[in-house]
């Protein structure tokens, strides 16, 4: 009798172990839930957009593209750590 009572619990324990793990979701200053790859993706998107904007509007004024790369790197660091 007691075995019958324990059987479902034992099964549930095994099922729990088999449950696939999902990537860690993080809540930061971004308005959506993200994992580290999402935040890396957002950083790359911003880096490319900033570089194209820099080429079009700021580089002709004499500002080197390396400044844009440095800004993008800082932004990427902040997004990946705190986004």
């Amino acid at each position: 009798m007691s075995d019958q009572h324990h059987a479902p619990l034992a099964t549930a324990h095994h099922e729990e172990e088999r449950t696939p793990t999902t990537p860690e979701r993080k809540v930061g200053f971004l308005p959506i839930e993200t994992n580290w790859f999402d935040r890396l993706f957002i950083s790359v998107v911003i880096w490319i957009a900033l570089s194209l904007f820099w080429f079009r509007f700021l580089e002709p004024a004499g500002l080197s593209i390396w400044i844009a790369n440095a800004i993008a790197l800082v932004v990427a660091f902040i997004i990946i750590r705190k986004g």
Partner: peptide, 9 residues
């Protein structure tokens, strides 16, 4: 993001 992504609470 605008239509499907889960919002952070």
């Amino acid at each position: 993001v605008t239509m499907l992504a889960p919002r952070s609470k």
